[in-house]
């Protein structure tokens, strides 16, 4: 394949490796090796736990750390209140965990720890991970929808004021757009993260190959690529935040459909 001829393989960073000789761990015939993906999920969870724990002192006058945590909880609280209404308060724990987990995963995956020999693994760049997160959100929508409205939940597929002759046309379209939601939700996050990391890797291969080809090429190709890389890194930080926000926002919108129909 053409992609394997490049000196710097941009897809290598996404390979899943078993850590510490756990290749052959099995449970009921399935391999349950402790991979770098699982490792970074664990790191993300621990960092997130410590971050929130630091803001749990419940002082009357919040310190800096507590302020930071409360800004995030307040942000999610406002988002749910604005999109779902009063009933949205009870989803704050779920959406907050989801948002912070994705945000921390994206940001930790961008850390330049490769210099120290530790290679961060962005597990949100795998569809298995984002897909499961999307399926959790989607099941909450289904469970809440059927719990609150019973079979009346199917009226979601026929928007208010649809003329009767249009129903056979509108309903399938609405149904498809409803069923596509978990895919688009998971796909968006996974592709956005993956595309950004591939882009960084491709630019770094320009820097490395350009500089190896001689000082002239290094100045002509390597230096501009390196400057561009710094800019793209800043953009990636923005994308990491936006994608986490979009995931949480769309989850809250879908939950709104289940809570209030439309």
């Amino acid at each position: 394949m053409a992609a394997e001829q490049a000196k710097v393989d941009p897809m290598y960073q996404f390979t899943i490796q078993a850590l510490g000789g756990s290749d052959n761990w099995e449970l009921a015939g399935y391999n349950i090796a402790f991979t770098n993906s699982a490792m970074w999920m664990l790191i993300t969870t621990v960092v997130l736990f410590l971050f929130v724990l630091g803001g749990m002192k419940r002082e009357l006058v919040p310190g800096r750390w507590q302020m930071m945590v409360e800004t995030f909880t307040g942000f999610i609280d406002n988002m749910l209140e604005a999109n779902i209404g009063k009933a949205g308060r009870k989803y704050v724990p779920y959406v907050f965990s989801l948002f912070m987990f994705i945000l921390f995963a994206n940001l930790l995956g961008l850390l330049p720890l490769g210099i120290a020999g530790i290679h961060p693994f962005t597990f949100t760049s795998h569809f298995t991970v984002t897909g499961v997160l999307a399926i959790i959100s989607f099941s909450i929508v289904l469970i809440v929808g059927f719990w609150r409205h019973g079979l009346h939940f199917f009226s979601l597929f026929v928007p208010h004021g649809t003329p009767l002759p249009m129903v056979p046309v509108i309903a399938p379209i609405e149904f498809i757009s409803f069923m596509v939601r978990p895919f688009s939700l998971g796909l968006r996050l996974f592709v956005a993260m993956m595309a950004g990391h591939v882009l960084l890797e491709v630019l770094s291969s320009f820097v490395i190959d350009g500089t190896n080809a001689g000082a002239g090429f290094g100045l002509l190709v390597g230096l501009p690529s390196f400057i561009l890389m710094i800019g793209i890194c800043a953009l990636e930080l923005l994308v990491a935040g936006i994608q986490a926000y979009v995931f949480a926002l769309l989850t809250s919108l879908y939950i709104n459909d289940a809570e209030n129909l439309h």
Binding site: A82, S184, L187, R188, A195, I242, V246, L249, L250
Partner: peptide, 16 residues
């Protein structure tokens, strides 16, 4: 919120 919904929809099709 609507800005980011529009952004997400437009972006998804590019990511596809």
């Amino acid at each position: 919120g609507r800005l980011f919904i529009g952004f997400a929809a437009a972006e998804l099709l590019g990511l596809l």
